[in-house]
Amino acid sequence: MLRRAIENLGSRTIDGVWRIGFAARFFVAVLLHSGTAFRRFGLTIREMYFSGVLSLIIILVSGLFVGMVLGLQGYETLQTYGSEEALGILVALSLVRELGPVVAALLFASRAGSAITAEIGLMKATEQLTAMEMMAVNPIARVIAPRFWAGVISMPFLAALFSAMGIFGGYLVGVQLIGVDEGAFWSQMQSAVDFEEDILNGIIKSVVFGVAITAIALFEGYDAPPTAEGVSGATTRTVVTSSLAVLALDFVLTAFMFRGV
């Protein structure tokens, strides 16, 4: 019984290490074969449509609502201290530093990441990737790398749009609905939000998240067992793994950026 358990642990560990190694090799191969994604930028643009443009609706609507909720909740809390004017700071800083990159990344993982995994997994299951290879076309260069770069490029734009939309939502609720002074709302925000410290760091975060999500989604699709269950399992794993990766990376990045470790 105990021996079985130890054996089980051993084989899982070996599998896990093997998979990490395979994933690392995959990632390096994607980077090495990225030439095509830039030489024939049309391929990347096409994928930006699928991962970026098609994620726009959910990003914009969620951003608006998150901002509106921040406006309401923030006002409730701040007014007990009599500092409603700080609402702009609260909304802007929480969005630009954390919520924008993180929530946009989580939405991106479930909207675009899962779609990427399912697409690549199906291409593999229906032998399209092998067919490509037999046509002397490298699927990493032709299929994987353009999707990777499209995700990496789209992510910061999506995060910025989310934050901008959220600030607009906070403005709608705080200024238009509740009646916080408009001038104070913007000026306090402007004096508190630093370009380098807050906005640039938020952008860096979203780029890192973009890399993590698309790399995980592509790898899960590429590594999926070529069956219906295999692909659906891989899709679920993409959402779970990339969401966890985003949250964990966010902690690490925040620790480095704002605490100056």
């Binding site: 291409m123 229906t126 032998e127 399209q128 092998t130 067919a131 290879e133 037999m134 046509m135 490298n138």
Partner: peptide, 19 residues
């Protein structure tokens, strides 16, 4: 290998067309 494959064609069991 890629050079050689350009002179080969392969028909997969279910066609493997790009969908």
């Amino acid at each position: 290998l890629y050079r050689l494959r350009r002179r080969m064609g392969m028909l997969f069991q279910f066609g493997a067309l790009f969908t």
